[in-house]
Write a protein that binds this DNA or RNA. Structure first.
Lengths: 279, 279
DNA sequence: CCAAGTTTCCTTATGCGATAAAGTATTTGC
DNA sequence: GCAAATACTTTATCGCATAAGGAAACTTGG
């Protein structure tokens, strides 16, 4: 659905995102006592999106789980868009907590752990991938997650500009591959057709409909012949496995190039990044 | 909206995708003469999605541009899903043609050109990014595009497995970054708020709502202080520029590592990939 | 030229989505 | 007990895909 943050009342949304949950004196307001709370609504919505996907997230669906009508939720959130922003930040609380608790011995293991946590996170909450990066949510938890990686990379001696780029590259690497993995899982749930069955049917159809495939696509056919499109294990779905492999190898090469940059071969001792450094 | 291919009648869709447009003898069929054609519907739908985005693509909108009702389109396509599949393959015809016409002198420039063409393509047709990779369309044009890159990399001496991985990595690199760039453009069109204005408002709000930002996020604040979040030029929108930079640097490092793999330093002459080779 | 068969296209209806508007119920301070 | 405020419900509007059924146009067999 592609959600852009900050559509409605931006101040309202930001206040909710950054509100401090500790001070709740509940000042005995007039009017009917609320039976729900923003947090409860958000948590319920997250669980709907987790189990049934973003496309099944409707105000009605959330209300139903709470024994309320769809409209009653509008007491707590101004719009569905605002609800999604709150859900997004709420979900990012998990990896943010974990990142802050990380105690890896060196920057490389810390960065690796950071990326793998993000991978697991997106697999648990794939609907967050549908929130646009072009109008980001700007809640505290994504900042916490970014700050923790920035701290690690800064400690390793990277320049601010390089930290920014590394974050972008890593995040993109995780997001792209995990999206394929997550969608493979979801497609199975949504369409009811398991992945291998889908592929089986489709390749039969392909042969039927494009009998000249091998002559039209000689290199691809030779690759297929050579087993390039067969995976090692058969337990895990094909696409998920391929995505994970690509993720791992991409992560390794990003880290390798960072490492090479930090300790440039045998030509000298480890030194700080020559770009702008932090004060 | 996340479109999964192959939902309805798979055989029908595949037949349409792979049909040969050359043989149209028009055998004087009985019944009312059609006033439109599948191709016309698909092309119109593509132009709707190009200008107004995937979320504005409705059967009604396409019908309106053709002076027809929404329902009349169902004579040509079985469902909206099938229409999107056809649109997807149709759009990929452009880069496929260009890729086949490429005459770069060496594999590196060819691969670079391939990636940049894909970047431009996705910027022109960003709605294609919303078609799931987990249930791919399997039309001829994406195969043509893949075949052309595979041919280049095979010519360079890469193993089938490595060709597959390189394709995945490159495609992911392009897709991830171009998505941010495209969404930045679209968000402006959809919400009416230009990017810089959005950021200006939001950062003011952020200060207001999180006055302790600098103490909570010291590294990020120092990075901002050091100018890590300021771009060189001011003409282009910030996010698009950042995305393009990340894409370029990512592309360069992927190609570098391929090159290093093909001609391993001073240790010996260029040799073929040690993995399985094509017959 | 007409009837039958076939195909295109239209109208109408269903059900689900967000949310605006307006009403009802519950709680407070006075 | 009452006014104001707040929570929650009902109802209505509009847009979406698409099922169902009917009208219109065209080809072919007579």
């Amino acid at each position: 659905m592609v959600v852009y943050a900050g559509q409605g009342d931006a101040r309202r949304a930001m206040t909710l995102l950054w509100r401090d949950r500790r001070d709740r004196p509940e000042p005995a307001a007039p009017g009917r006592r609320p039976e729900l709370s923003v947090d409860l609504v958000v948590e319920t919505a997250v669980s709907v999106a987790d189990t049934d996907g973003m496309e099944a997230l409707s105000m009605r669906a959330v209300g139903e789980r709470l024994g309320r009508t769809a409209m009653s939720l509008y007491t707590y959130v101004a719009s569905k868009n605002e609800l999604v922003e709150l859900m997004y930040d709420h979900a990012f609380g998990e990896p943010a907590d974990a990142a802050e608790a990380d105690d890896s011995p060196d920057w490389r293991t810390a960065t690796e752990a950071w990326a793998h946590r993000l991978w697991d996170f997106y697999l648990r909450h794939p609907w967050t991938l549908e929130v646009s990066l072009a109008r980001p949510v700007l809640g505290p938890n994504e900042y916490r997650l970014l700050e923790s990686l920035a701290g690690v990379l800064h400690g390793a001696g990277l320049s601010p500009a390089r930290i920014r780029n590394t974050y972008g590259t890593l995040h993109n690497l995780v997001r792209g591959q995990v999206q394929t993995a997550a969608e493979a899982r979801r497609a199975e749930a949504v369409t009811g057709v398991p992945e291998d069955e889908w592929w089986y049917e489709r390749s039969a159809l392909l042969e039927e409909v494009a009998p000249d495939f091998t002559t039209r696509f000689p290199v691809l056919s030779a690759m297929a012949e050579a087993g390039a499109f067969v995976n090692e294990t058969e337990d895990e779905p094909y696409l998920e496995q391929e995505a994970r492999e690509t993720f791992r190898s991409g992560l390794a090469s990003v880290l390798d190039s960072l490492e090479a940059h930090l300790s440039p071969g045998d030509r000298g001792p480890r030194r700080a990044d020559p770009d702008t450094t932090l004060t």
